[in-house]
Computed example of a mutant assay.
Amino acid sequence: MVDVALWSGLRPLVGGQDSIAVEGRTVGQILDSIRRNYPALAPTLDAGVSVVVDGRVIASSLTEPVGENSEVVLMMRLKGG
Rank of each mutant, 00 (worst) to 15 (best):
V52Y: 04
A40F: 00
A5Q: 11
L62F: 06
G67A: 15
L6H: 07
P39N: 02
I58W: 00
V66T: 01
E23M: 09
T26G: 00
L6G: 01
G24I: 11
R56H: 11
I30S: 07
R56V: 12
L41I: 05
M76P: 12
A47E: 13
Q29P: 07
R11H: 09
S33V: 03
T63Q: 10
E68P: 08
Y38N: 08
L62P: 00
S8V: 10
L31G: 00
S61H: 06
L78S: 10
A59M: 13
E23D: 15
I30K: 09
A21S: 15
D46F: 03
V27T: 08
G9Q: 11
D18H: 12
L45D: 01
L13M: 10
T26E: 01
D18T: 13
L6Q: 02
G9T: 14
V49G: 07
S33I: 03
G28D: 05
P39L: 05
V22G: 12
D54T: 06
M76V: 09
S50F: 00
A59D: 12
A42T: 15
L6V: 06
K79T: 13
R56T: 08
V2M: 07
R11E: 11
Q17R: 15
R35F: 00
P43C: 07
R56S: 06
L13Y: 13
R11T: 05
I30V: 15
K79W: 10
G48T: 10
P65G: 05
A47K: 15
G67N: 08
G81V: 07
D18A: 12
E68W: 01
T63E: 13
Q17Y: 01
S8M: 09
G81P: 12
V53D: 00
D54W: 05
V57N: 11
S19W: 08
A21H: 14
A42R: 14
S8L: 10
R11A: 08
T26L: 03
S70N: 02
P39F: 03
P12Q: 13
P65F: 05
G55D: 09
T44F: 07
G28I: 01
I58T: 03
A40N: 11
P12N: 06
E23C: 11
L45Q: 05
S61I: 01
L10E: 03
I34V: 14
N37Y: 05
V73G: 01
Q29F: 04
L45N: 01
R56K: 11
D18K: 11
V2Q: 08
R36D: 14
L74M: 10
L62N: 07
V52A: 13
R25G: 15
R77E: 12
T44K: 14
L74N: 02
G16C: 11
M75T: 13
V2P: 09
V2S: 02
L62W: 05
I20W: 04
V49T: 09
R36G: 04
M1I: 07
G55M: 05
L13C: 01
G81R: 07
R11I: 10
R36W: 03
V57E: 09
V52F: 07
E68C: 00
G24S: 02
I58R: 06
Q17A: 15
S8E: 15
L78G: 03
A40C: 05
D3N: 08
D46V: 04
